[in-house]
Computed example of a mutant assay.
Amino acid sequence: MGVKKKLGLGLASAALGLSLVGGGTYAYFSDKEVSESSFAAGTLDLELNPETVIDVPNIKPGDTMDRAFKLVNKGSINIKKIKLLSDYSVENMGDAANTEDLGEYIRVNFLFNADKLNDVVYSTTLSKMKEMDPNVLGKNVFTPLMERKGLKAGTTDDMIVQFEFIDNGEDQNQFQGDKLKLNWSFEAFQGKDEEK
């Protein structure tokens, strides 16, 4: 056997031996970390307390009725804005045929707070509220009352509203015995996106 053959066989044997040694004894350090993540959606939960803002019998022109109610954020997300949708129906229970809408004669005065009952934030009639864009009331009533910060989760805002049966100084007998059923729907909205 020649030197070249011996050298070639030796190199082949060495390569085979290295591959067997390297393949059979391959070892390394390792480490492993597991990330457990979650996403939990918050809740937006507006509560009105009491649910019936006003229920009063036997009103007459010139009467005023102050009522307090609370808007409670029972959710985990801050409420940025509130809309108020107003609707009503009138039952003519009297003898006279109505030529006018009783809702035009019920003025609603949203008052600043219990300590300052004379500070009217916004005033309108039920008939105008019924046709009004709910954003108008949100902007003019709830935003100022909530100090432009909204209603934070777990907090309450006290609201005072005054209803007034407008006395126009004329005969208003057509409204005798009428019954107005008022429906207010409060709708809450979250604020803008937040970096968490």
Rank of each mutant, 00 (worst) to 15 (best):
150 G>Y: 01
174 Q>H: 14
160 I>M: 14
181 K>N: 13
151 L>F: 09
163 F>L: 03
131 E>I: 06
170 E>C: 01
176 Q>A: 05
156 T>F: 10
177 G>K: 14
129 M>R: 05
143 T>M: 13
175 F>Y: 08
140 N>W: 08
170 E>Q: 13
152 K>F: 05
178 D>P: 04
131 E>M: 09
146 M>F: 14
175 F>T: 08
134 P>E: 07
160 I>H: 06
140 N>A: 14
129 M>G: 07
152 K>R: 09
154 G>K: 10
154 G>F: 01
167 D>V: 03
166 I>Q: 04
154 G>L: 05
152 K>Q: 10
152 K>L: 04
148 R>N: 14
154 G>V: 07
130 K>A: 08
138 G>C: 02
171 D>A: 09
177 G>V: 05
140 N>E: 13
152 K>G: 01
146 M>E: 12
148 R>D: 15
137 L>I: 14
139 K>I: 02
164 E>V: 05
161 V>Y: 11
172 Q>N: 07
142 F>E: 05
151 L>C: 04
130 K>N: 04
144 P>I: 03
170 E>L: 03
162 Q>C: 00
148 R>I: 03
153 A>T: 10
147 E>I: 02
169 G>D: 03
155 T>D: 09
168 N>I: 07
166 I>C: 02
168 N>W: 08
146 M>L: 15
152 K>D: 12
172 Q>K: 12
140 N>T: 08
162 Q>K: 12
147 E>Q: 13
167 D>Q: 07
174 Q>W: 15
140 N>C: 04
131 E>N: 12
131 E>L: 07
170 E>H: 13
182 L>Q: 15
181 K>I: 13
161 V>P: 06
